[in-house]
Design a protein around this nucleic acid. Structure first.
Length: 931
RNA sequence: AGGCGUGUAGCUCAGUUGGUUAGAGCAUGCGCUUGAUAAGCGCAGGGUCACUGGUUCAACUCCAGUCACGCCUACCA
């Protein structure tokens, strides 16, 4: 007789090999056709809400691994909250407007020979372009296992969104936040537009720095020495600034005198080759009376004290052009200087009406371009030439520094004062309110609060107008005098119009038509004669989502559909983005929501770090060329499968940098296999188990099963706490270590004997199967937020599973806990196990035994502190054939070859083999089982 | 340049209010098993806790500074 056939050996169709790349798309298909997301939402409709609001990625290009990380983290949260029984809808969004798309589209149109497209045509092409990438990214996000309302995302280009954005804007206009001002803004010359702070990136740059002589009025051959790295701003010079805390001197070199900060004189002397010079100190009064003649313009200016003048570089005198820098602007305003910016939209020097023409730059300079080509610009060259001709150039050298660049054209930006719309941050103590509101929000990690506070406290007024076509129009008009008109009611009417026709209507209709459509009934102001062609900063788009999404989508309403219980019910529970969004979306959302809705749009803000490579160096999206493989989500999903990518995301503490490397993902793949095998082992031993018929009540479970369930209950508590605190790496560590230690190396190993050799329906085997059933159900659920595909796949194999998909299920905590006696016993058992295992290893090394079942263990303990059943438990725990404990004084532990013969069926060494004539080669226990 | 972070075994993480030889899992090496088998079990090796200095009887833990990396900011005139 083949006794192997009488064993209850494991069997399952849950494959050992994951084949994720092949299997996941099939499961995805299944989810879609079963309308899984909709089913889950319907089932949770009346449950407590959990609102995670998606920050919209930009609708351009493939999904980057960093973007994938963000989406996966959000999905883990959503799936976890759903598992806990909450209603956690996920409404993805896309940021659709903006320069990158317009840039691409314009390029394509130029290539196609369309050079004279009007705004409406360009906008239509941009719309098509954005939607194309939304579709692409949607497919890639779905492939990651992210469940959500993918058929109804929010898009900032939707007319309903645009209308709500304008309504929020109208509220802010009505409250007096918005003003027209002439201030220096970042200007991109190739893009011909003002830029927001967030559209500026810093890059190394070599500037031509010059030391220039400014002749002092009334003192022959005496000069103030200034330093600048932007010679083209010299035509706009209207002052110099000095620091009252520094000691200035007049250095006499030959027959010339140079005034500068004493501390920088030696460096200056070295640059200019001054070997013999004398210095005379200047008093504060001397400085305050300094007047100078502009080196090449016909005007006289003076020196002003200013704190921002530093002593480390330059000369201690700062060249001030109020139209070309923020400090310069402030100093100019404080001293009633004109905000003079003699530069046109093309980035060329030009006369401006701020000063009489005769006081402006020489005619030869007009029209010279500031834009650098190969490190040189015509404007700089023209100014340098003029300085040389006039012997005003003391020294010239290259200066390496980090300088702001346009994020699109990658060219150095310029500061340029021009008329723009601004949101006044200090309006009605708004900045203080914003800071106070920040304290009401929970920031994770907690240092985020410093980041955003710093950003809000130091930020200048918000320049919100853009001279671009692909954006939401600013519904402003011009009166016959050319004065701009921005009125809240007009904006609201425009919003209604745009809600009906889309924002293209603003570009398609004439000013007169628009005016007749949006003019308020009780209007008594001037009549409009022209419309504004400016669009809103894209940060207003995404920053308005509190109004356009949180307050709009019924799925997010916290009480019965369509009704809100309280004023604050619209606030999201969580926003989750990269830490760069402290200056970006977190801030724009906060400011707009506070100004327009009266509160921050979020209760908790979670932040994750950035992707770095194996050497912890950044991998930026624009530097992909430097890497062999594109850093797209797809590249990794295609190779490892989404679940391994998801496990990798969960495995790391995302609050600091996230290492993305092949090595790391491979390691995670190993962990994945460990988890999968554990699930497979559990499932494979439940093939004949029906929980409805065979479940054993807690108090009748064997000690071993009670122990593992007790451990499991502790694990659950820890894992849930980690999920609640968004510490998914702790979830990963706890789960993978539990599976490796408590399960794989102890419990799973030990229970093989009873599962395989006990009679199929024996109480002991059913007890263990009851435990396994609870373990595998609980594990699948705890893993489900992370291993979205695999947990669901395993779930399908669980007998008597309560729901079709694990993602529909509700988590029920394991309540079993051991009583104090049991706990004490297990401490004792584990201590002895730790002692016995090394002895078994020694016996193995000595070739006394092979596997543990070949062994007999005998040891002596000082007093009787065990019961017979406990020694049997310990025997099981170390998996030997015999274990004998005796009371005595000596502390001995002996491992020897087990007595008797090896049972052919259970492989235990037993002394009762041969007693049964029908089954002469198996032990008594097996005889019973076989019969 | 400034602000905010990060830096513990090859990898990912623990390390409670400073207190014995710094832990875990994975990976590696060596063995065992062959009734989870492209699986399972055991044992072993592996760390100047980024660096330097200080406080203390005692520091991975507190303080100061340095270095590296990341994010952010900046008018470098």
């Amino acid at each position: 007789m083949e006794y192997k056939d009488t064993l209850n050996l494991p069997r399952t169709d849950f494959a050992m090999k994951a084949d994720l790349v092949m299997r996941e798309p099939q499961r995805l298909e299944k989810w879609t056709s079963a309308k899984l997301y909709e089913k889950i939402q319907a089932a949770r409709a009346c449950k407590e809400k959990f609102v995670l609001h998606d920050g919209p990625p930009f609708a351009n290009g493939d999904v980057h691994v960093g973007t994938a990380l963000n989406k996966i983290l959000k999905d883990i949260i959503i799936k976890y909250q759903t598992l806990r029984g909450k209603s956690a809808p996920y409404i993805p969004g896309w940021d659709c407007h903006g320069l990158p798309i317009e840039f691409k589209v314009s390029q394509e149109m130029r290539k196609a020979g369309e050079t004279n497209a009007d705004a409406a045509t360009i906008r239509k092409a941009c719309d098509v372009y954005a939607r194309k990438y939304i579709d692409l990214q949607r497919t890639q996000f779905k492939r990651l296992g992210v469940l959500g309302d993918w058929d109804h995302p929010y898009l900032t280009l939707n007319k309903e969104y645009e209308a709500d954005e304008l309504r929020l804007f109208a509220d802010i206009v009505a409250k007096g936040f918005v003003y027209r001002g002439k201030k220096p803004v970042y200007w991109s010359i190739p893009c011909r537009t003002a830029l927001a702070e967030a559209e500026v990136e810093y890059a190394d740059h070599v500037s031509q720095s010059v030391f220039v002589k400014f002749p002092v009025v009334g003192q022959l051959k005496t000069f103030i020495v200034i330093w600048t790295t932007t010679p083209w701003t010299l035509p706009a010079n209207l002052a110099v600034a000095y620091n009252e805390k520094l000691q200035y001197v007049a250095a006499t070199v030959g027959d010339e005198k140079f005034i500068l900060f004493r501390g920088l004189l030696p460096a200056m002397a070295e640059k200019c080759g001054w070997t013999n010079y004398t210095e005379t100190p200047l008093s504060l009064e001397d400085l305050s009376q300094l007047k100078y003649k502009h080196p090449f313009c016909n005007r006289i200016s003076r020196a002003y004290p200013a704190d921002f003048v530093t002593s480390d570089t330059g000369t201690g005198f700062v060249h001030i052009a109020p139209g070309h820098g923020l400090d310069d602007y402030n100093l100019g305003r404080a001293n009633s200087l004109p905000i003079y910016s003699p530069v046109n939209d093309d980035g060329a020097l030009a006369y401006s009406n701020e000063l009489p023409v005769e006081q402006q730059m020489p005619a030869e300079m007009v029209g010279k371009s500031i834009l650098e080509k190969h490190g040189k610009s015509d404007a700089n060259e023209a100014v340098l030439h003029e300085l040389r001709v006039r012997h005003a150039l003391l020294h010239q050298e290259n200066y390496h520094h980090s300088y702001p660049h346009c994020w699109r054209s990658k060219t150095p930006i310029i500061f340029r004062a021009m008329d723009q719309w601004f949101i006044k941050i200090d309006h009605d103590k708004f900045r203080e309110q914003a800071v106070a509101e920040i304290d009401r929000v929970k920031w994770i990690p907690d240092w985020g609060v410093n980041r955003i506070k710093g950003a809000v406290q130091s930020r200048p007024d918000w320049c919100i107008s853009r001279q671009r076509t692909w954006g939401v129009p600013i519904p402003a008009f011009y009166d016959p005098k050319g004065e701009p008109m921005l009125d809240a009611q007009i904006v609201r009417n425009a919003a209604d119009l745009i809600e009906k026709h889309g924002s293209n209507v603003w570009f398609e209709k004439s000013a007169a038509e628009l005016w007749s459509l949006v003019k308020p009934k009780d209007w008594n102001g001037a009549e409009a004669v022209a419309k504004s062609n400016d669009t809103l900063d894209v940060w207003i788009d995404s920053g308005s989502s509190s109004r356009a999404v949180l307050m709009r989508r019924k799925e997010f309403f916290k009480s019965e559909i369509g009704n809100r219980k309280s004023e604050m019910d619209w606030q999201a529970d969580v926003y989750l983005e990269g830490s760069d969004q402290h200056r970006g979306w977190f801030q724009s959302s906060l400011l707009l929501s506070l100004a327009g809705n009266g509160a921050a749009p979020f209760k908790t803000v979670l932040t994750h770090g950035f992707m770095v490579d194996a050497d912890r160096e950044k991998i930026s999206k624009s530097k992909q060329g430097a890497y062999e493989k594109p850093q797209t989500a797809e590249a990794y999903v295609k190779k490892y499968g989404a679940d391994v990518v998801r496990l990798w995301v969960a495995s790391q503490d995302y609050r600091s940098d996230i290492v993305v490397s092949e090595e790391r993902i491979n390691k995670v793949g190993e962990t994945y296999r460990g988890i999968r095998n554990a699930l497979r082992y559990q499932l494979s031993n439940l093939y004949d188990f029906d929980p409805a018929k065979h479940s054993v009540p807690d108090d009748q479970l064997t000690g071993l099963d009670r122990w593992i369930l007790g451990e499991f209950a502790k694990l659950e508590a820890e894992v849930l706490a980690a999920y609640d605190q968004y510490e998914f790496h702790v979830v990963y560590q706890k789960l993978s270590q539990f599976i490796a230690v408590e399960l794989s190396s102890v419990y799973h190993d030990v229970i093989k004997d009873r599962l395989y050799t006990d009679a199929a329906n024996s109480p002991r085997r059913r007890s263990t199967q009851t435990a396994l059933h609870r373990l595998v159900s609980g594990l699948c659920q705890m893993l489900a937020p992370i291993l979205a595909f695999t947990a669901d796949e395993a779930w399908e194999f669980i007998p008597g599973k309560p729901t079709g998909s694990v993602h529909e299920s509700e988590f029920k905590q394991c309540t079993l806990s051991l009583d104090p006696d049991e706990i004490g016993k297990w401490v004792w058992l584990k201590q002895w196990r730790e002692k016995i295992l090394p002895e078994l290893e020694k016996a193995r090394q000595a070739k006394t035994i092979g596997k543990a079942l070949d062994a007999k263990v005998e040891f002596v303990v000082p007093q009787v502190q065990w019961q017979l059943s406990d020694s049997e438990l310990l025997r099981e725990l170390v998996n030997v054939s015999a274990l004998k404990i005796t009371a005595g004084e000596t502390d001995s532990l002996v491992v020897s070859k087990a007595d008797g013969q090896k049972c052919e069926r259970c492989w235990h060494w037993k002394t009762d083999i041969g007693q049964n004539t029908e089954h002469p080669t198996i032990c008594g226990r097996c005889v019973e089982a076989v019969n």
